[in-house]
Design a protein around this nucleic acid. Sequence first.
DNA 1: TATTGTTATACTCTATAACTATA
DNA 2: TATAGTTATAGAGTATAACAATA
Lengths: 168, 168
Amino acid sequence: MADEGNLEAEKDPTSNIGNASAGPSLDMGCLTRVLGFHLRMANVAIFQDYQQTMAGLSLTPKQFTVLELVGCNPGVVQIDIAELLSMDKATTMALVDRLEARSLLERRPSRTDRRRKELFLTEEGKKVLQEARELIALHEKRFTSRFSEAELKSFVEQLRRIYRPLPD
Amino acid sequence: MADEGNLEAEKDPTSNIGNASAGPSLDMGCLTRVLGFHLRMANVAIFQDYQQTMAGLSLTPKQFTVLELVGCNPGVVQIDIAELLSMDKATTMALVDRLEARSLLERRPSRTDRRRKELFLTEEGKKVLQEARELIALHEKRFTSRFSEAELKSFVEQLRRIYRPLPD
DNA sequence: TATTGTTATACTCTATAACTATA
DNA sequence: TATAGTTATAGAGTATAACAATA
């Protein structure tokens, strides 16, 4: 039992974060050993830079993702996007609604199964997507530049290991 | 220029995700090369397992983080938590409000600077925190077991490289 | 009966801005 | 003047449940 499920806050020298530039330098307790915590912190850091970069286009990361998916898969339906991104179908609905309200994509009923609404980018949507790709490339570079080619490859592989249900 | 800011969707064999168990197997376009995308997917995967694990305690990851920080740093003030977690102070306010409403922590005005409200866990808060730590340890293990000790260490180091402003 | 999309509802996260009390 | 906390407000993400149309 001494090793099972133990997240007691033993003191260790890496137990402080936040001593980056000024910061309060708090004791992080068990958080230093919680993968989800580091993942969330990394996500927040990337998101903040993303927001600054994309302020002009006002596309959230998820909105960009959907735009890219529709761009690369014309006629894709909501349910497939929902499954791929692990979203509820109601959530996906709201997301697509916003993009449609901005005339970046449109829904067209499938001719073979009229329950399904196929998604297509509008001309405006294609233009915005291309602009977004260019901005995101610059944004990404600010982070990927902290890694060598090999490091980046293994880092991405490890991230995929987290979100792939089982190694395949 | 051929290499700068290029996120065009060249076909490559890793360009498909979502072929995990059933899934639609869409073309992911430039997303396979977007670090933020992989990070978000990993975050979602961990969050979903987290939610199942913590359903009984109904503590969000951030609520757990704050509880742990207050537990390890009795008397810490909101502004320090906000800075450490890169949150707005209004956001922090709402977060602490919810924890206080559930009587997991309490605010006490500092005696040296009455603008500051020091945070302390209640007895109930300490109990809940300990339960949460144990549940989270089990939850974490479902992901960390996909890595060797050395892999895990380098993975966490790489995540920190993302969220630390500058290597120090 | 199952699936796709839809609507209604609600809660959380998040940020902005303006305000109060204190330093 | 600056700082810590607070309140009000609003948009986005998320989930649940119920419903309509179609298969």
